[in-house]
Design a protein around this nucleic acid. Sequence first.
DNA 1: TGTATTTCTTGTCTTATGACAAGTTTATTT
DNA 2: AAATAAACTTGTCATAAGACAAGAAATACA
Lengths: 189, 189
Amino acid sequence: MKNELLSQVYQHPLISQDELNRIIDSHQKINFQKGDFILKEGEVASNYMILESGLIRSFAYDYNGNDITTDFLCNYEVVIEVLSLFQRTPAQENIQALTDCACWKIDFDIFQELYHSIAGFSEWGRLWMTGKLFQSKQRSLEIITTSAKDRYEHLIKEKPQVILQSPLKYIASYLGITDTSFSRIRKEI
Amino acid sequence: MKNELLSQVYQHPLISQDELNRIIDSHQKINFQKGDFILKEGEVASNYMILESGLIRSFAYDYNGNDITTDFLCNYEVVIEVLSLFQRTPAQENIQALTDCACWKIDFDIFQELYHSIAGFSEWGRLWMTGKLFQSKQRSLEIITTSAKDRYEHLIKEKPQVILQSPLKYIASYLGITDTSFSRIRKEI
DNA sequence: TGTATTTCTTGTCTTATGACAAGTTTATTT
DNA sequence: AAATAAACTTGTCATAAGACAAGAAATACA
């Protein structure tokens, strides 16, 4: 399972089988229980993880102290607070398990060594960041140009697990509306 | 000027003076006139640039074909369509000069060579992407949690040049509102 | 198993923003 | 400088979403 999962995640034409094995060997199993905090605002991240199973959310607080869900993560996704990990600064976001989760963890210093010794791995990393940046910009565009209802329908298609496994209030804040409005939108559909 | 500008942009503890010089030498001067397209949707980006002077915007089209400004770039910022450049795919965004602009360009293949031969440069690149990703997430959060009026006031503080040099309709779409609503918000202030 | 707490829904009223249309001002072009 | 086009403002009315409050349902807990 570990090999299969991580081989898929780290697939890249410039990474040889040998290098891939080194990368995979650097990951360790770690589990979380529903509700566990994987990273808390203010802590400095010292690793990232590949999510094998379960659902995770990241969230931040707005000016009024409201908890706003910034992302949902599921199968095969990378669980990471990029800013904290790469800048070695206190995290601005919280990361929390919404269900029991199984993950594969890699520590920052080991990652760094691989990143600088395997050209394909740093290419992989850059491509991953590229994808994340694109997603994030798409999200801004979506918030600006579509209604909350449309965004909800889009989320249902993109990540149906979220609808099944997350408390509705977290989905509402992710969509950028109150749970009251969200309840009404759900009634319409 | 070239040295001063690029030294500042590529500042990083792991980049030696020698390496910095190699990086700087790889940039060439390029100018644009007001209105010029620097990159058009569908083209594959083959370089990126550091902006010395002038104002640039990037924009995309929404489902209804409306032109939505996704970003404003000014002094010392990196002008790039990350997805197209690193994934070698057709650009999803347009990049356009809003004023006459002076830039320093670097081609992708030269960048690649530096990226893989100078450890500090790939660190620099990762940090730059990290910052961009953070900015983008902050923007989503801002759109979700604050009013158009607050976002406008924030933009005035962050990038006052934009208010002075960009047509208002581009600012309106960046803020996520119609130019009609934007006009009313401006009247209030 | 019952109690407390959290989550979710519903009602009423308010507010920010949009849609559309008409006008005004400002740029471009020749 | 006239003609045209583009950018911006203003008016009226419609709508999506918020604020607040009360109640219902689900979940946790003791």
